[in-house]
Amino acid sequence: MGREERLPLLRQIEEERQAAVICYFTGDRENLGTRVAPDVIRVFYRHLLALGPRPRIDIFLYTRGGDVLTPWRLVNLLREFTPRLGVLVPFRAASAGTLLCLGADEIVMGRLGELGPIDPSVANAFNPEDPGNPAARLPVSVEDVMAYLALAREVAGLEGEGSIAAAFNRLVDRVHPLALGNVHRNYALIRLLARKLLQMHLPPEEDDRVQEIIQNLTEKLNAHNHMISRREAVQDIKLQVVEPSERLEDLMWRLYLDYEDDLKIREPFNPALMLGPNEYSLAFNAAAGIVESVPCLDAFVFEGTITRENQPREGVPPVNVTFTYQGWRQLL
């Protein structure tokens, strides 16, 4: 399908929810994916200006994650246009997507809907070198560092200041102190962002619940790729999750499948297969992310050329890919 077929689905979801809907779909196609990033803020602003202030706005969301600061800026922008914000989750809304959900008055999760932990991994020039590629740096998980120190105290039984200091010094021998400082800043940042997003719609008397949600989404989940189901989100995480009606669930899933098909999510981007047997060069244009509402459509586009090697060398790919453009493009 395409936009002409999607518009009736969008309008039916809006009617069912009595809310304006903006779809934010970051594709996770193999070799050609997109993530939540600051450049989407101006794209959203264009859609919001076209929609105008509304009593209710819903974000139809699919993402594997991305920049953790973007949800804070995005939720603040959305709340300039509406007092009531919802997020529709037909499938995945992980990491930064879960942070975005924390800023919503309600999260509408389908049966297949899943959220994720909000424990980021950080990378900077002081991180450890990647043994397989000395030019690259290994990301350091914020919660892994905290778990190491907890291991020293709780499992190894280290209690005295000297013992804890010795364990910390062993860590410093492996990880640059400035990298660890960055870990601590992000440890504090993710909790601050989560708290501020939740406090946008939860009253002060629910502060204990806010703290419990933050703990549940950080140190109490032991794997960054843990998939939080709808049942777990309600019973264990204590989030404001609602189940869609059968009709809304069907509409949400059909819309998801259309985006999945349009962005070829389940088909790896394989430049070698795109060239015909007698072709040596090919220009390509591929969408890898979408922001769509009834009045507007934007796509994150990759453009470039694929060229075949005349004399393939051992260890060198038989084709070269040169990107000439990547970014959001206004389509309507």
Rank of each mutant, 00 (worst) to 15 (best):
N270S: 14
A286R: 08
I306C: 09
V294R: 10
Y325E: 05
A272G: 09
Q311M: 08
M252W: 05
D258T: 11
D262W: 12
L263S: 14
G276V: 06
M274E: 15
L282K: 08
D261T: 07
N310H: 01
E303K: 09
G315C: 10
I306P: 04
R266A: 13
C296W: 05
G276L: 04
T307V: 02
I265Q: 05
A272Y: 04
F302R: 15
R313L: 15
V316G: 03
Q326I: 13
V316M: 02
L263T: 14
E309Y: 04
L257C: 12
E267Q: 15
E279Q: 07
P271E: 08
M252P: 13
L273H: 07
M252C: 14
Y280P: 03
F284H: 01
D258F: 04
C296K: 14
P271N: 10
N285I: 04
V291G: 12
N310R: 09
L273T: 12
E314V: 12
M274Q: 15
E292V: 12
P318S: 05
L273P: 04
W253G: 09
E303G: 09
S293A: 10
F300S: 13
L273G: 06
F323T: 15
L257A: 09
R254G: 04
P295N: 03
R308G: 06
S281A: 12
I306K: 10
S281F: 06
V301I: 15
V294H: 00
P312Y: 00
R313K: 15
E260N: 11
L263C: 13
M274Y: 09
W253I: 14
Y256K: 05
